[in-house]
Amino acid sequence: MSNLRPIEVLIVEDDARVAKVNQRFTEKMEGFRVVAIAATGQEAKVWLEEMQPQLVLLDVYLPDMKGIELVWHIRQHYKQMDIIMITAAEEIEVIQDALRGGVFDYLVKPVLFDRFKQSMEKYRLHLQTLSSHQRLDQKQVDQLLGHVQEPMSETSLAKVLPKGIDPVTLEKVVQAVQEHAEQGLTAEQVGNYLGASRTTARRYLEYLVSIKRIRADHTYGTIGRPERKYYAEQN
Rank of each mutant, 00 (worst) to 15 (best):
I68M: 05
T219H: 12
G221I: 04
V21W: 00
Q52A: 13
I211F: 09
E179V: 07
F113I: 07
L107F: 06
A158D: 03
F25K: 10
K20L: 04
V177T: 01
H180I: 07
I68E: 03
Q42S: 12
V21F: 00
I92P: 01
K163H: 00
T219C: 15
V148P: 01
E91R: 09
E93R: 02
H126G: 10
Q183A: 13
T129G: 06
A98V: 12
R5F: 11
I165H: 03
M85Y: 11
P53A: 14
D114C: 07
V141R: 04
R100Q: 04
S132L: 14
A89I: 03
V60W: 03
L57D: 10
V209G: 06
Q149R: 15
E171L: 10
W72T: 08
R203A: 05
L4P: 03
V94I: 06
L58S: 13
L62C: 08
S2T: 14
S131Y: 14
Y204P: 04
V56Y: 02
Q76T: 02
K163E: 03
V46F: 13
P167N: 10
G101I: 02
E93P: 08
I214T: 01
H133E: 06
Q234A: 04
G31T: 01
L57H: 07
V177W: 02
V18S: 07
Y230C: 00
M51Y: 15
R202N: 03
I165L: 02
E8K: 08
N192K: 06
K45A: 08
A187S: 12
M65H: 05
A36I: 10
R215L: 00
Y123H: 15
V12N: 15
E188S: 13
Q149K: 15
L58Q: 12
E233P: 00
L4R: 07
H73E: 01
A36F: 03
H133S: 11
A181Y: 06
V148T: 05
N192D: 08
V34P: 12
Q96R: 06
P162I: 00
T222K: 11
T222Q: 13
A201R: 01
E50T: 12
L4T: 12
K66C: 03
R17V: 13
H147W: 09
V111T: 10
V168Q: 11
K109E: 00
I223M: 08
E50I: 11
I84F: 10
A36M: 04
I11Q: 14
K159Q: 12
V60M: 09
V108R: 05
G102Q: 11
K159I: 08
V168M: 09
I7L: 14
M81R: 04
F113L: 07
L70W: 06
L145M: 15
N235S: 14
L157M: 15
E182W: 03
N235G: 05
D14F: 05
